[in-house]
Amino acid sequence: MELDRRPVASLWIGAELHYLNQLCLKSHLRHGHPVTLYCTDDVKNAPDGVEIRPASEIMSIDMALVNDTSASFLSNVFRYKMIQKTGAIWIDCDAFCHRPFPDDQEWIFAGHGMRGALNCGVVALPRECALMDQLLDYYDNLPDYPAWWNKRQRKQMDRIKDKGGYTHAAAIYKAERTAFGPQAFTWFAQQTGDIERAMTPDTLYPVPFQLNDIFYDPHGRVEGWFTDQTMSVHLYTNGTKPWWRKNPPLENSYAARMCAEVGIDPAQALES
């Protein structure tokens, strides 16, 4: 395959990819996007063609903080530092490439779900812009509380900190898991006015998060959510039930059909 389109990149914390992650990374190669996977460990089961690079090329990964939060926690700052350093499009490892990203589209992000907030699972930004500056300043200089939080959220974090044992960043995460991801991205895009650049959910997140079981339903109608504008399909592995992670997808489900189409054997990379 000829990799002549815009590069995309992601982060993986851990030693092995799940088959859905293999599927999503390889789907971008299939459409001509060079794929770089920044890793904290020696990942051996990435699809052929994916370039493996140490995550330390972009930033150091505080594994103690990851252990207090989640494996995906630091991806929320990593993605912007990566974009600023390389200019690549950020893709979550559960974002399936339905059609290639336009070569000339400088801003790529969209709303998702049923509430209209932005998601940051697929992001392209100018390497120098006000939104980038504000996001990185937020992560590098954490406020006492995120500016958009209400009294209930602040009290929740205070209770967590009073119990002790967590850093300030971990306490924010424990109070609101998405405070470093979609919440922050939505807030700062509102402050800079760049929220007006957001694409509609059907472009990057056609299936709402609340309905993510549909990807494994052999009688589901996943493509019914797609439009002519759909470029990426988010598979929401963080919300996937354990049974789907530990077993191959059922025949004729979207996950099974895409694995067959792209050339991924689910049985070779299941969650143990």
Score class of each variant (00 low, 15 high):
81 K>F: 08
80 Y>K: 03
71 A>K: 14
81 K>W: 07
89 I>C: 15
79 R>C: 00
34 P>H: 11
56 S>T: 14
77 V>C: 06
78 F>A: 00
45 N>A: 09
49 G>E: 01
87 G>N: 12
62 D>M: 01
72 S>L: 07
87 G>P: 11
69 T>E: 12
50 V>C: 11
60 S>D: 10
95 A>S: 12
65 L>M: 14
47 P>E: 08
38 Y>L: 13
73 F>V: 14
37 L>H: 03
54 P>W: 08
92 D>Q: 10
40 T>M: 01
86 T>R: 09
82 M>Y: 00
29 L>A: 00
76 N>P: 09
59 M>G: 01
69 T>G: 01
47 P>D: 01
37 L>Y: 04
32 G>A: 02
77 V>Y: 09
93 C>E: 08
81 K>V: 10
76 N>F: 03
84 Q>Y: 03
28 H>M: 07
96 F>I: 01
88 A>Q: 11
64 A>C: 11
71 A>Q: 12
74 L>Y: 05
69 T>K: 10
62 D>N: 15
93 C>M: 13
58 I>M: 04
61 I>T: 08
43 V>C: 00
33 H>F: 07
77 V>T: 14
95 A>V: 09
57 E>T: 08
55 A>T: 05
61 I>S: 08
78 F>I: 00
66 V>P: 10
42 D>W: 03
61 I>C: 13
91 I>S: 07
53 R>W: 06
66 V>C: 11
37 L>F: 11
58 I>D: 03
57 E>H: 05
38 Y>P: 05
99 R>G: 07
67 N>L: 13
76 N>S: 11
85 K>D: 15
28 H>V: 06
87 G>C: 14
70 S>E: 01
70 S>M: 10
50 V>K: 12
93 C>T: 15
95 A>M: 11
33 H>T: 03
88 A>W: 02
43 V>H: 02
65 L>H: 01
98 H>D: 13
91 I>R: 09
100 P>I: 00
64 A>W: 01
83 I>R: 14
70 S>L: 06
46 A>G: 02
36 T>E: 06
86 T>A: 13
29 L>G: 05
90 W>C: 06
37 L>E: 01
93 C>K: 00
48 D>Q: 10
58 I>E: 10
64 A>G: 10
40 T>L: 08
74 L>K: 06
35 V>D: 09
26 K>S: 15
28 H>S: 12
83 I>G: 09
36 T>I: 09
39 C>L: 12
44 K>F: 05
77 V>Q: 09
90 W>K: 03
59 M>Y: 02
91 I>L: 09
31 H>E: 13
81 K>T: 06
79 R>E: 04
93 C>R: 10
93 C>H: 13
84 Q>T: 04
94 D>H: 14
71 A>F: 08
35 V>K: 01
72 S>I: 15
26 K>Q: 12
46 A>W: 02
94 D>V: 00
25 L>Q: 05
57 E>M: 09
85 K>C: 09
62 D>T: 10
100 P>Q: 05
